[in-house]
Amino acid sequence: MEFFIKKENEKKREYDALVIGAGPAGLTAAIYIARGRFSVLVFEKVIPGGLAATTHLIENYPGFPEGVEGEELGRLMEKQARNLGVEFAMEEVVDVELEGEKKRVKTRDGEYEGKAVVIATGSSHKKLGVPGEDKFTGKGVSYCATCDAPFYKDKKIAVVGCGNSGMQEGLYLLRFVRSIDFIEYFPYIPADRILQERVKKHENVKFHLNHQVLEIVGDERVEGVRVKKRDTGEEKVIEVDGVFIFAGLSPNTAFLNGKMELEDGYVVTDEFMRTSIPGVFACGDVRKKVLRQVATAVGDGAVCGASVVEYLEGR
């Protein structure tokens, strides 16, 4: 049993670096910046750990041979950062001023100044954008297995998306539900083989590959998912009580309000994690990149932290 505490600290108004987002990327960047002996404040609106914290088990991040719970990994990274003097503001960032030598970050509770800003706001599970999805959000449509799994005890559910997230969360959901219908857009399962093997060991799972979700159907609550087989065009309704969606990610960049050039919503950087604005850096899932994992977020964060230190030292 876990006991989460949102730890507060005294805050100043000015820092050398402001890091937006306390996921693996932002925390790693903060650790590197703090080791360079610069002051750093990290903003977080939910909890340290980011999206990874809602992942029940992370098994592909080295150093944890039995896997590590996302929440625990976030807590350990936060602790390491705090030990180095990193400060935290558990506040949601609503606006930024990134041009010029002094950058400003506004939250719902205040305003902070920094010489450098790191954007590490990550990504969220994307909506499918199909009819019924919004209507049934909270009435059978869910994006968080660790949050909502208990409501589906002995129920039939569908999981949309057979990537690593869909499979890993599917394994967690299998502890609660009666059966899972996995729906995948591609004609193959994109997840790591090891996860596929584990899911397939269960008798109560079924795969619908090469299927596109057309609609989430129901009256008051979700009653099924209407899908189309992509090669034949054949349609069917898979009857379920709930749908968990883990089909792709969407970057958390709304707060940037067009103040920075984005590509498909993602922040573009060079290999030093520098954006087009001097003194503004980005790392992790929020960045335009090929693989979004804890391991790659940490790698980004390290490069980013080192670049920020160089920038602050005026090199």
Binding site: K6, I47, C147, D148, A149
Partner: peptide
């Protein structure tokens, strides 16, 4: 709420 929901304490 559920105890595994990070969005709930808010």
């Amino acid at each position: 709420v559920t105890t595994g929901c990070p969005y709930c304490p808010g």
